[in-house]
Design a protein around this nucleic acid. Structure first.
Length: 491
RNA sequence: GGCGACAUAGCCAAGUGGUAAGGCCGAGGUCUGCAAAACCUCUAUCCCCGGUCCGAUUCCGGGUGUCGCCUCCA
């Protein structure tokens, strides 16, 4: 297996050739969410990105192990619980559910494991103990345990900063009990009313960062291939993870080999964030647009680029996705006819030659685009190229301009497969259309309406025919009069 | 103050040392009872100034602008 795949590694700030640690296998750790409220579209971007990356590796024959955590013990969860007079567990469970609902809508496949902080306590305590024993961490009177950044010569290597250059305390008050202003908490002593776990340093809970070090080690080992997340996690989160993990393991080349970070979603070109209040939840967008459209919107831009969210932008994504969908439907219909033996073959023609050759070439280009740091924007562009070829062929065939031999039909089936393969990696056209209730009933009603309209058309009663079509359109149902009869679809 | 990213047509967005994918919108045409869908045609010298090079949008330097990280954050 020689896959020449290049990825942009934040650690080196350049594209590197991907070499799996184990031939044919990929281990991925993507930082998950802190479940304290419903996910917004910016939160969703890394998960859609990694979903595509995973699909691509699987398609290329890799065995993929994909881990994504839930940080279910956290200040904000506790704060939310206190506000609502419920337990932290209730809050985290509620928003984990809401997270999964959003991901299902976006057609994001489940990770292999979703470890939680609350279920990884013994291992977390174990690693902190190791860090204290090795002298990388120290305990305060209060029971808090801190990681000492000065003990780590390489601290700052991911984010490219030096301790001296950072303006610690510029925006937040420095806790002067700490040895160095940048030292960060591994273990926080329990305050009254907070959830806590027993530890060698007294009752408390883990600090942020340590959970990801522990969980990745637990499920992927000391070395694994990819670690991902949003760019805002580069510092301090991932920097601190590296510090902890490498100190604990005692090897500066352990932990993740490639660091991939996605750009932000913006609103009016400003970062979307919960604290700034300028966000759109996935749930809200879903009220107006299918999850597939949101997913497609995210993937039309390269994952490292910023992506500005707006109603117009998502509308455009919907329109262009429809274009691909039309081709998808057209080629599938033709393939179904071939498979059902409904296509009459005639000799002599070689109608599929052109589209077949182009499809194979486009698939190659598509894969090359994905090989180049998962360039979904380019890859999707290739899909549009094939889409045009499919439209031309299907139209010509339907209009009787061309015919097929048995050999052509096999090539057309291959073209259909190629288009489907690309769609599968992007993750579109996999969700059932929502008929908004009893689809059987809707089918029947539409049959009746269309038949009445056809009678009107036969009688050249255009006023009635057009009124039916226009009214349906207002209701979100589109009618198309084609040579093969009337087609309808829900907008 | 430190570090970093980006700047491509009306809009969105790829990309390459040898004059620039794709999508949306718009215009014209074909098809249609009219539409819709689809197809065809048309719409850019890539922020500014230097430098390297036979040649730069692509490399280097400077400038301007926008954004991000240095606090929780995807």
């Amino acid at each position: 297996m020689t896959v020449l795949l290049r990825v942009y590694n934040t650690m080196s700030r350049s594209k590197e050739e991907f070499k799996p640690l184990k031939e044919g296998e990929v281990g991925i750790y993507c930082c998950g969410v802190t479940p304290y409220n419903t996910p917004h579209i910016g939160n969703a971007r890394p998960f859609v990105t990694w979903d595509v990356i995973r699909r691509y590796f699987l398609k290329r024959g890799f065995k993929v192990k994909y881990i994504q955590n839930f940080t279910d013990v956290d200040d904000k969860i506790i704060a939310a619980a206190n506000r609502e007079f419920v337990t932290w567990k209730e809050i985290s469970e509620r928003y984990i559910k809401s997270y999964f609902a959003a991901m299902d809508a976006l057609n994001v496949r489940r990770a292999d494991v979703y470890p939680k902080v609350s279920e990884t306590m013994p291992e977390i305590i174990e690693m902190i103990k190791t860090l204290v024993d090795k002298g990388f961490a120290y305990k305060l009177e209060s029971g808090d345990v801190y990681y000492s950044v000065e003990k780590d010569e390489e601290y700052g290597k991911l984010s490219g900063r030096k301790l001296d250059d950072m303006q610690a305390g510029a925006r937040i008050e420095v806790d002067d009990r700490k040895g160095h202003p940048m030292d960060f908490a591994l273990w926080k002593s329990a305050k009254p009313g907070e959830p806590s776990w027993e530890s060698p340093w007294g009752a408390g809970r883990p600090g942020w960062h340590i959970e990801c070090s522990v969980m990745s080690l637990k499920y992927l080992g000391e070395k694994f291939d990819f670690h991902g997340g949003g760019s805002d996690l580069i510092f301090p989160h991932h920097e601190n993870e590296i510090a902890q993990s490498q100190a604990a393991i005692g090897d500066n080349h352990s932990f993740a080999q490639y660091w991939l970070h996605n750009g932000f979603i913006t609103i009016d070109n400003e970062k979307m964030s919960k604290s700034a209040g300028n966000f759109f939840t996935v749930e809200d967008i879903l009220k107006k647009y299918p999850g597939e459209v949101i997913r497609f919107f995210l993937l039309q831009t390269h994952y490292r680029s910023p992506l500005n969210f707006s109603e117009d932008a998502i509308k455009e994504a919907q329109t262009s996705l429809k274009r691909l969908k039309n081709s998808h439907d057209a080629i599938n219909e033709l393939a179904a006819k071939i498979n059902a033996g409904e296509v009459e073959f005639s000799g002599g023609e070689n109608s599929s030659e052109n589209i077949f050759a182009k499809a194979e070439e486009i698939l190659k280009d598509f894969n090359e685009a994905m090989d180049d740091d998962f360039n979904t924007a380019l890859a999707i562009g290739k899909m549009f190229d094939l889409s045009r070829e499919i439209n031309i062929y299907c139209n010509d065939f339907i209009n009787g301009k061309i015919s097929m031999t048995a050999n052509d039909s096999q090539k057309i089936l291959r073209v259909q497969k190629i288009f489907a393969e690309m769609a599968e990696i992007i993750g579109i056209f996999e969700q059932e259309e929502n008929f908004g209730g009893n689809s059987e009933l809707v089918e029947k009603l539409m049959e009746i309406i269309i038949s009445i309209r056809q009678d009107a058309r036969a009688a050249k009663n255009w006023a009635v025919a057009d009124k039916i079509r226009d009214s349906l359109k207002d209701a979100g149902v589109v009618l198309e009069d084609t040579p093969q009869g009337v087609k309808w679809s829900i907008q």
